[in-house]
Amino acid sequence: MKYEASHLTDQELLLDIERIPSGHKEKVIRTHLDGCWKCRARRKGLENAITDFVHVYQRESDPELPPAAGPRALLRARLAQLAATEPARRSIGTLVWRGLALASAVCGVLALGFILSRFSVVWRDSSARAGIVSIPDARLTPGATLLISRPDVCAQPDTKNKAVPVSMQRKVFEEYGIPGADPGAYEVDYLVTPALGGADDIHNLWPHSYAATAWNARVKDALEDRLREMVCDGSLDLSEAQREIAANWIAAYKKYFHTDKPLAEHCRRCGE
């Protein structure tokens, strides 16, 4: 907007609104505004435009954003993977050492990728064929959690997992490469149970096979109850419980029940 030379420009008015120091100019602007109704009205107009824009900007964008739990969990898993595959930085290092480290990291990543892809194919083929899945794929189900505190977790009266909608179950089957799976053969299970702050998100769900005779859903339920007890009596940190169950729930079971196989009271078919 162009104004006669005696008035302030829009840029000068904005500098004043934003309180950006501009030295001598700042004083000139203030002095002019003190005596000029017209420029004060224009300044007010700019402020109103900022207010209107911010309201509309927030309003138009915020409701569209999906929950952060899934992407957050995915990031945690990818960070852990990155930290595991890249060599840690040391304070003393030569160019040769760095070159070797880089080469080995690249080889490691390639080898890991190769192994994972082979494993994935074999695993998916075998799981589709045999229909047995006891441990979720960490890339598909890293375990999404909510930002929730220990008191909030322990205040939840109902610790029973709510049913996963059929449409979500189908998505999980598709993710795991078994789109035509019989829903009756699997329990689409939460990796981190909501009773421990697990999120209602696809990154926290996997098809837990009923065909698994030893490490089945009932055994996992027992672990979840045990961990929740420990979290709520203060003997285990909530984030630690979430991390352990997400990393390998079978290993966590072995650790917290001090056993290599499911206890009889947790598993009716373990002897089969």
């Binding site: 840029q11 008015l13 904005l14 107009g45 700019l46 435009a49 209107d52 824009f53």
Partner: peptide
């Protein structure tokens, strides 16, 4: 940046007027 913002806001003001 200051010029760009003042130009955009001036357009919003004109539109409101």
């Amino acid at each position: 940046i200051s010029l760009s913002l003042s130009r955009s806001l001036a357009r919003l003001v004109r539109s409101a007027e």
